[in-house]
Amino acid sequence: MEVDKGKGEAEETRKVAEADRDTVTLKSSDGKLFEVSKEAAARLSTVLAGMIAGGSIDDNGTDLKQIGSEALENVVDYCNKHANSIPSAALISSSISFNTAPFKEPEEWERKFVDRLSHDALFDLVEAANFLGMERLLDVTCHKISEMMKGKSPDQIREVFNIKNDYTKEELEEIRQELAWAFYDD
C-alpha cells in the first residue's frame, strides 16, 4: 500500500490533537455524532477504554454501528452526567453486606435518568450498555426493568413485556401449587 507522506503527517498531527482533547466523538449507526467526556467514557465503558488506550478513536467520529442515535445519545448523556456527579459514599463502598456481589442501589439522578425513558428506549439502552461493556449503566437499567416487573403477576409481566406463555395450563398450575403463597394475590 502506498503511503502518502503528507497525509501521514496530517494523521499524526490529528492523533496528537486527539490525545490532547478531553472529549471523544462517537458516531451512531445512523451517522449522528456525539461528544463525550473521555475520562467518563474510559471509566464507564470497558470497550471505549480499550479503544482510547489502543488509539482506535476517530476524531471524525468513532463508528458504533450497533447503536442507534437515540440509544447513543442516552449513553453519552449518562457518561457526561456521570462525569459531573460526585460519586456518593454509597457508590464507592457499594455496601459491604455479605461477601457476594455488592448491592448496586442507583443514585437519585440515575433513577431519574432511566425513569424518563420509554420501554423501547430503555431496552435499546440496555443493549448499548451491554455492547459497550458499561457495567454500571447495565446495572442501573436492569434495576429499572426489575422494578417494572416486581409487583406484577406473571400474566401482567407477559402482557407488558410481550412474552409468549409456553406453559400448558397443567404445568402452570403445578408451579403455582408448589409455592402457592407467592401467588396468592394474582
Partner: peptide, 11 residues
C-alpha cells in the same frame, strides 16, 4: 417473591 412468580412467566 418476585423471583418465584417469575418462574411462572415462561419456561
Amino acid at each position: 417473591a418476585s423471583m418465584i412468580r417469575a418462574t411462572a412467566v415462561c419456561k
